[in-house]
Computed example of a mutant assay.
Amino acid sequence: MKYGSLILEKKEYVYLKRILNISGYAEDFETQKSLQRFSEELKNAQIVDEADIPEDVIRFNSKITVYSKNGWEKTIQLVIPSEKDAKKDKVSILTPMGAALFGYSEGDTIEWDFPSGKQQINIVTVTQDEKQKKIEIPI
């Protein structure tokens, strides 16, 4: 892990803690397990101000290209649950892929349990959407 632990911006951290507390409704066991692991990782995360978050850290609206040791590569955008859209590759934070990636950075490798089984994925690139700076976190 490039920075030693997950890195999250303060407002995004507060929002994540809130939605994870109410997300006990996850549709399946694997998703629930992913969200539980993500909650555990958040306990050791570095919480920083907006100005101090590195550009290559995955956060809301980040565009991420990931590569799996299984041979697939995909570019997605990580979004709040209400903005998810599979046709546009917008993945909710409340999915196993969203939970696996949030707070990690470009160059990191993650081993995570997905519904299709344990996979090792590499974070190839991370770019921030210009909309990122203006994200409105629901209260």
Rank of each mutant, 00 (worst) to 15 (best):
127 T>S: 05
133 K>S: 14
87 K>P: 01
66 V>Q: 01
31 T>K: 10
28 D>A: 09
138 P>G: 07
112 W>M: 06
91 V>S: 00
126 V>A: 10
81 P>H: 03
84 K>P: 12
5 S>Y: 04
123 I>Q: 06
33 K>G: 00
50 E>C: 07
34 S>Q: 02
106 E>N: 08
94 L>C: 02
15 Y>K: 00
27 E>S: 13
78 L>Y: 01
61 N>P: 01
78 L>S: 08
5 S>R: 05
114 F>L: 07
40 E>P: 00
119 Q>I: 02
131 K>W: 15
135 I>C: 00
38 F>T: 07
5 S>E: 13
129 D>L: 14
60 F>A: 12
85 D>M: 00
10 K>W: 05
53 I>G: 06
79 V>I: 00
23 S>E: 09
15 Y>I: 02
139 I>Q: 08
33 K>V: 08
9 E>C: 12
74 K>Y: 10
54 P>Q: 08
100 A>S: 14
125 T>Q: 01
10 K>S: 13
96 P>D: 06
134 K>M: 04
125 T>Y: 01
20 L>H: 03
63 K>L: 04
46 Q>H: 12
34 S>G: 02
70 N>Y: 14
62 S>Y: 02
20 L>D: 01
49 D>V: 04
131 K>R: 15
48 V>Q: 05
11 K>S: 13
44 N>Q: 13
30 E>G: 04
68 S>V: 09
32 Q>S: 15
66 V>E: 00
96 P>L: 04
